[in-house]
């Protein structure tokens, strides 16, 4: 057995949907590597599904090292189980992303709908658009900008790979902490005025918050 990771793809498009566990089992039989990467594509997996996957992997003496998916639900589940997980943009395979990593066009946005709760973590290789609240204790991170159509009460990190021009915008900006590129700032103490969207960006080496004019 060699140790270079091999990738198994699970997707919802084919007729495998009904019986994906059986299908995965048969795929594991053909695999030669011990370390497995799972690409779930657009398939929604819950924590219990992933636990079953792990059990199947253990049966064939394999170890899952990483999850890829375009479904944020799958990513949140696998991350909450402590697995390395990569959120992939739709219509954009991981390989091309990796190749173009340096001059990645960050106008592409990942989209997440729903509340991000305490302890949860969301990471995006481009811009991140969240339709919902980011609760205290949650962390959202993007290599590009972060836009939250809701309240930001947790921690947000924009420009996580060093883009100092990244911004964080929210309908209500009341974060515990803001990070842009390598700068860190504590959130403001006083509550912001209701009904005014705000934006945080770096201005002369400091993170400042101003009223949002345009994204």
């Amino acid at each position: 057995m060699n140790s270079k990771p091999q990738k198994i793809i699970i997707n919802a498009d084919s007729n495998q949907y009904q019986n994906w566990k059986l299908c995965v089992k048969s795929k594991f039989k053909t695999i030669k590597s011990k370390n497995i990467e799972i690409d779930c594509e657009n398939f929604d997996l819950s924590c219990s599904d992933i636990l079953e996957l792990i059990a199947i992997a253990n049966e064939s003496n394999c170890k899952i090292v990483c999850f890829y998916s375009t479904s944020s639900k799958t990513i949140v589940s696998s991350q909450s189980l402590g697995y390395r997980s990569h959120f992939i943009l739709e219509n954009d395979s991981y390989n091309t992303l990796k190749m173009n990593n340096k001059d990645l066009n960050i106008s592409k946005a990942d989209f997440h709908q729903g509340t991000i709760r305490s302890g949860e973590y969301l990471d995006s290789p481009g811009d991140l658009l969240i339709l919902g609240d980011v609760n205290p204790g949650a962390i959202v991170r993007a290599e590009g900008n972060i836009i939250i159509w809701g309240r930001l009460l947790g921690i947000a990190h924009a420009g996580s790979k060093g883009n100092a021009r990244a911004t964080i915008s929210a309908l209500q900006l009341r974060p515990l902490q803001l990070r842009i590129a390598s700068k860190v700032a504590r959130g403001p103490k006083e509550k912001p005025q209701l009904g005014l969207a705000e934006q945080a960006r770096i201005d002369s080496e400091k993170i400042i918050i101003s009223q949002l004019e345009s994204i």
Partner: peptide, 15 residues
């Protein structure tokens, strides 16, 4: 409330 929020997240991911 913070702990409850964490638990609700886990309940959601477990459907």
């Amino acid at each position: 409330v913070r702990d409850a929020d964490r638990v609700i997240g886990l309940l959601n991911t477990n459907a």
